[in-house]
Nucleic acid binder design. Structure first.
Lengths: 330, 330
DNA sequence: TTGTAAGCGTTATCAC
DNA sequence: GTGATAACGCTTACAA
């Protein structure tokens, strides 16, 4: 053993007085005589030996590492997702190598490239690059976004969630509904929240409007819209479905400034339910995404050996949770 | 090139009609004739070649990967820290491999082991295992916790922060102060928040009390304590320093239920200021930890070539930010 | 400047 | 069941 550098299998073999191959077998659950196995294990412990996973990876082409590419982990939804992905991977003996893109399409592409170069066993990505190039050499699962026909996409049942939100509001007595959304210009699964909402309203003949903003617009237009729809102190709408919980809180704040009372004058339902997965009470009444299940599903699909019959879209069920912004007691 | 598997340098060499070593030099900025370089680059592009970093790592013993070990990334402080660490590492050409311990000392030890086995170039850990074993083979930087004499620890100036909080409250007119803390039983740098607070109060002759809970106690005792210290509708204290912003919000909620008004009747200062690093308004008046700087510092120290003159504790400066729970306008 | 060849620490294939 | 030996894809002397 060269001084200063870590011990290798060779060192262990010499220390234990066995052949190199025998040591390898011990660390790979091969069949080895019990006496030899003990000798090897003891020698390894004496030397403080650890398998060099890079050498192993070079040989086996499996690295037990998965790259996760996310816009950030500051947004609670992303951080809870990241945490659940990490745990799901760990449970299966994989390590998570995390990249933060800050919504930059070029960074997304760069990280995907890097990940491939680093021989990861797979990539899970939540990306906004409409023409993302992903080599089909390494398995890829996309979260909430369609990438290409052979890239499976995992998402919540956004359409169903939109329907559910509208249905709940109607059940809670609302007569005139509003859908509020702010987000990326890039098309994604979550756009279907609106589709589901409108489908339900149309189907039931419920009056409804929609305000659809892009991130760059900021919240200002929401305030203007709400203000313009207050007549004699009353808001024209008695039920609002917001595309995220974060937006719901923001709208609630605006309404409070406009002296419209939640949930007496108007009831609010958001989307995500992240707080629930953080062990907290929900911040608002909301459609809950099954984040732990989403994470497990991403990982399962990614690591599935048989890539032949991959579905191209997997929608997971959402649920409703009251949280103070509707008139169904928490 | 064997069909189905990725192209290697050998394939590129053959395709370009040059020797293997030449290809290697091209990808390592060695000196290669311009004509050869072009030939190699083109051949590489044609084949879609990417350097296999595992093979490279095996040879060079540098993997450009750093393990980050955190209790979770759901707590906003940790998630902002993780994000900043990730960015600091990326900036320097390193990848972040994240482990979530959920405060489990055994998991901490396990991940440290794993990280070493995976030949990372270093480990940054925020751990609660009082007798963590970390091989001195791989560089380790500890966040907020003393591990051993030769493991550098990076933390905010918690003592100074405690003093600053007390000083601010006194400047804002408080006469009788209270320090509230809940946290781990494991000793850490953040315990010094109390020390600094008390040192200031003693030095200035300010009346003060302290309530020091462990996580397992829950928030209940705080409520009892506050209730017991309300006489004729007035709280005995007019200034409270809470050990985190999360606790501050919790206390604020309790006080509101007890009909004590913040900041009129009592002023609150928290610790962390995480919201500021998320681009939000602070949730409460607070002592702000310089999270981006903390992350940069961890990474700088970890990757420092010359390990000879490592300080054992690096304290970074904190600052005060008003946020509505004190009587200095936001 | 370019090519050759010897490893890096494993795993895997064989003879034994 | 055990032990040589040849890869794996790359870097790096060293020779040409």
């Amino acid at each position: 053993m060269k001084r200063g550098s870590a011990p290798t299998m060779k060192d262990v073999a010499r220390e234990a007085g066995v052949a190199l191959g025998t040591v390898s077998k011990v660390f790979n659950n091969g069949s080895v005589g019990e006496e030899y196995r003990q000798r090897v294990l003891e020698a390894a412990k004496r030397l403080g030996y650890q398998v060099n996973s890079y050498a192993r990876g070079l040989k086996t082409n499996r690295t037990y590492a998965v790259a996760v590419v996310l816009p950030n982990i500051i947004n609670p939804f992303f951080s809870v997702l990241a945490q659940n992905l990490c745990q799901a991977l760990t449970k299966r003996g994989y390590r998570m190598f995390l990249s933060i893109t800050d919504f930059d399409p070029e960074a997304e592409q760069r990280y995907i490239h890097m990940a491939q170069q680093n021989q990861v066993d797979g990539i899970i990505g939540l990306t906004y690059n409409p023409d993302l190039q992903v080599a089909d050499k390494v398995p890829f699962v996309s979260f909430d976004r369609y990438v290409s026909p052979d890239v499976p996409c995992v998402a919540s049942d956004n359409f169903g969630g939109g329907q559910l939100a509208a249905k709940k509001l109607v059940e809670l007595g609302c007569k005139r509904l509003l859908f509020l959304r702010i987000g990326s210009t890039v098309a994604g699964e979550s756009d279907k929240r609106r589709d589901g909402f409108e489908a339900f309203c149309r189907g039931m003949g419920v009056e409804h409007d929609t305000l659809y903003l892009r991130d760059s617009d900021g919240y200002g237009p929401f305030r203007d819209f709400l203000q313009a729809h207050i007549h004699q102190g009353r808001l024209d709408y008695d039920g609002i479905f917001c595309c995220t919980d974060v937006l719901t809180l923001e709208i609630q704040k605006m309404l409070s400034e406009l002296e419209v009372h939640v949930p007496q004058d108007v009831q609010l339902i958001g989307f995500d339910g992240t707080a629930i997965h953080m062990g907290r009470e929900p911040d608002c009444s909301t459609i809950v995404q099954p984040i732990p299940l989403l994470a497990e599903t991403c990982v399962d699909i990614l690591l599935k050996e048989d890539k032949s019959d991959l579905p191209s879209l997997i929608c997971l069920p959402v649920s409703y949770a009251p949280g103070g912004t509707t008139r169904d007691g928490a």
